[in-house]
Amino acid sequence: MQTKVVLKKLTKAYGRRRLFADISVTIPGRSVFVLHGPNGAGKTTLLRIICGLVPATSGEVEITVDGKLLAREESREHIGLVSPELELYGELSAVENLEFFAGVRGLPFSPAKARDLLTFVGLAGRGRDLVGTYSSGMKQRLKYAYALLHEPQILVLDEPTSNLDETGVAVVAEIIRRQKDRGIVIMATNEPGEVSYGDQTLALGQPGTGHLVQGPAH
């Protein structure tokens, strides 16, 4: 599949406070796009706009898969999100969470696939435990399983390695490498090691100023 994400003059303001303005970027397939900048610069908000969870004040996000421009609802089927703001159901086990999300996406669910996915993210043997009993690092790993369940074309990562130990960080590096072969990775981070993954990087400016610097491809 050929995937492309185009941000056209995206502006987000809350009342008079402008978070960022006129962001225009084309993110081609098989690439990693990294957002960085200080706290409050709007990194998470920009990711949420790309995912169609928050409307932009002005501008557009165009997501194209195999030449077809997708409507917002359709585009969500091609997006996997990992974010500190996203939580899974603590009253369900990891396997039940994956079964549920496969069900609402209309995907066939197999325990074997869930087991493979959980093993890949480092949760082997813990699939039957309630998510509410997980540590923050285990919850972060499960969010990757949730995001990868439908094999999305676009993987959106907000603070991708937060709460993760060394093996978790290595898993994330592998996920990014595999996703880059399949589609697009868009991530927000301030970790220098993660910023270096970017084929394109975008530095959002100081809070409220809307200052924007677009970096060259690495």
Partner: peptide, 12 residues
């Protein structure tokens, strides 16, 4: 619970 984001992305 913060699960609304996961649900919005997964379900129409």
């Amino acid at each position: 619970a913060g699960t609304v984001t996961a649900l919005k992305l997964a379900a129409r």
